[in-house]
Design a protein around this nucleic acid. Sequence first.
DNA 1: TTTCGTTATGTTCAAAAAAACATATTGCAA
DNA 2: TTGCAATATGTTTTTTTGAACATAACGAAA
Lengths: 129, 129
Amino acid sequence: MAGSIGDKYYDVFLKYRLWLCNQSDEGILGDGRFELLREIERTGSLKSAADNLNISYRKAWGNIKQAEELLGFTLVIKQRGGKDGGSSQLSTEGVQLLAAYDELREDFDQSIKKITKKFFNKINKNGNK
Amino acid sequence: MAGSIGDKYYDVFLKYRLWLCNQSDEGILGDGRFELLREIERTGSLKSAADNLNISYRKAWGNIKQAEELLGFTLVIKQRGGKDGGSSQLSTEGVQLLAAYDELREDFDQSIKKITKKFFNKINKNGNK
DNA sequence: TTTCGTTATGTTCAAAAAAACATATTGCAA
DNA sequence: TTGCAATATGTTTTTTTGAACATAACGAAA
């Protein structure tokens, strides 16, 4: 929340986005894709993950593939065929990267809180309404 | 830089974007627009600012207008006509907001450094190459 | 009262991103 | 040996975004 009711910046919020990219500035993984990895880990299926996150299978699959191509290694081990049609699970690298990202995100959020508070205190301060 | 040569994540970089938005998630001001404000403050002209930043006047003007509409107050005091055709300068609010954002950005950058380092140390650590 | 450079704004074109559609492949189990 | 459900991909359509184009209004100074 930006400030108190009546503040000049009452309806203003500070947001941020984090992502990994390569030197050519091509996006590798951001919040959305990490969430997808998390859901694959949880459900054991790319399709279920996509369905649960309300994105098309086509898009989910393409996102994972692109990330893997840019990284140069596999994040998701995929199997097709079989009685259930197939399944997916995170590779060791995928598990580790996801865990590291979760921690990163937490540290980030934590760190941002006081900075944000300082910012809104400053722009909402008296004489500025 | 992500890590040392040979690291698994050598060509991976962490980036982030900061911006202000309202409750409806409409973007108000981000890095680009703040840079525009800064250039207007410096040059005293929206046109000069746009030219210097290599964006069209049309776009620069629209960006400022949208930000002002969402905020509900003026960021840039614009005058047209006159011997020089017109001029623009930041309002008191504009000056204050820009200053606060500059400080915010600095705090943010500072705070992010060690978090980033920790992240890459983790994912690049031995046994993970 | 004409000129000039800037602000002001509608409109149209082009490019990029995302969504939608369509179809093939795989391999266990019945 | 057929059916099934999930993975694998190419193609087309739609949406979004941004760039480009065009043109009006303004007002001090010459």
